[in-house]
Amino acid sequence: MQIKEWAARASVRQWCLLGLLMCCFMMAVALYLQYGVGLEPCPLCIFQRVAVISAGVFFLIGAIHNPKHWGGIVYGILALLAVLAGIGVAGRHVWIQSLPPDSVPSCGPGLDYMMDMLPLWDVMSRVLSGSGECAAVEGSLWGVTLPQWTLLGFVVMGVIPVALLIARLKRGASSTRAVGHAS
């Protein structure tokens, strides 16, 4: 069976399991880098993990539910929103790392301290503005930094909910046409 044929026939469960597998892979790599290699995640890395986990939750619920009609579109949209948030945070991280050293924002308080002392909205805005610790390039593989790999992972993962949405919308349009011809 060709990929295009599989994509047209795949159920919501199959698409969601594929997305969940990608989320598990990304989190496994992140946890290995933290606990196996000893790289501590910066605040932007933690927000990227939140986006991966959020997408994973939507994929998991979609896989368990396996809706037949519009539910697949809802799960696809929710997962896509989580992935787009991850793309935004990872893109911001890549941008901060590309700044010249004299343009990098200064280091601020740690994420734990901010979460204890500030409202959530203030924490999010401070983290997304970046800090010196987010600009540090801790490691790279084949000349590609970890935030760049994460951005690539989010882009690849983004294909899954988009393909799910396209498949569901095509299937919905063809069933609507079939009902219209039967009348």
Rank of each mutant, 00 (worst) to 15 (best):
H65E: 10
H69C: 09
A55R: 01
C24K: 05
P43T: 06
M26W: 05
A82D: 05
L20R: 11
Y32W: 07
L17V: 12
G72F: 06
W70N: 15
A10H: 06
F58A: 09
V37E: 15
A63P: 14
F59E: 02
I77R: 11
V57H: 09
I64K: 09
G56A: 01
M26N: 03
C24G: 09
R13Q: 14
M22C: 14
A79M: 04
R49A: 13
A85Q: 08
L17A: 10
G62C: 01
A10D: 08
F25P: 06
A79Y: 09
M26K: 04
I46E: 11
V83I: 10
G72I: 08
F25W: 11
G71F: 00
K68M: 14
A30M: 00
Q34A: 09
Y32A: 07
L39N: 13
V12Y: 09
L84P: 12
I87S: 09
A79G: 12
P43D: 05
L44R: 04
F47S: 02
A30I: 00
Y35E: 15
V57T: 12
V83R: 00
Q34W: 14
A10F: 10
F47H: 06
V74I: 15
H69T: 14
L33I: 09
C16S: 07
Q48R: 04
L20N: 03
I61P: 02
Y35W: 15
C23G: 14
I61K: 04
A63Y: 06
G36L: 04
Q48D: 05
V29W: 04
C24A: 08
L20T: 10
G76W: 02
G38I: 10
A10P: 09
L78W: 06
L60A: 15
F25V: 12
G88P: 01
Y75T: 01
H65C: 13
S54Y: 10
M27V: 15
M26R: 06
L80Y: 02
Y75Q: 03
V89R: 01
I87K: 07
F47W: 03
L44E: 04
I53K: 03
L33M: 15
L60I: 03
V52I: 12
C24E: 08
L18W: 12
G56K: 00
L21H: 11
F25Q: 10
I87M: 12
F58T: 05
P43V: 07
G56L: 02
I46A: 10
V37C: 11
A79W: 12
M27W: 13
L78K: 05
A51R: 04
A82K: 02
Q14D: 13
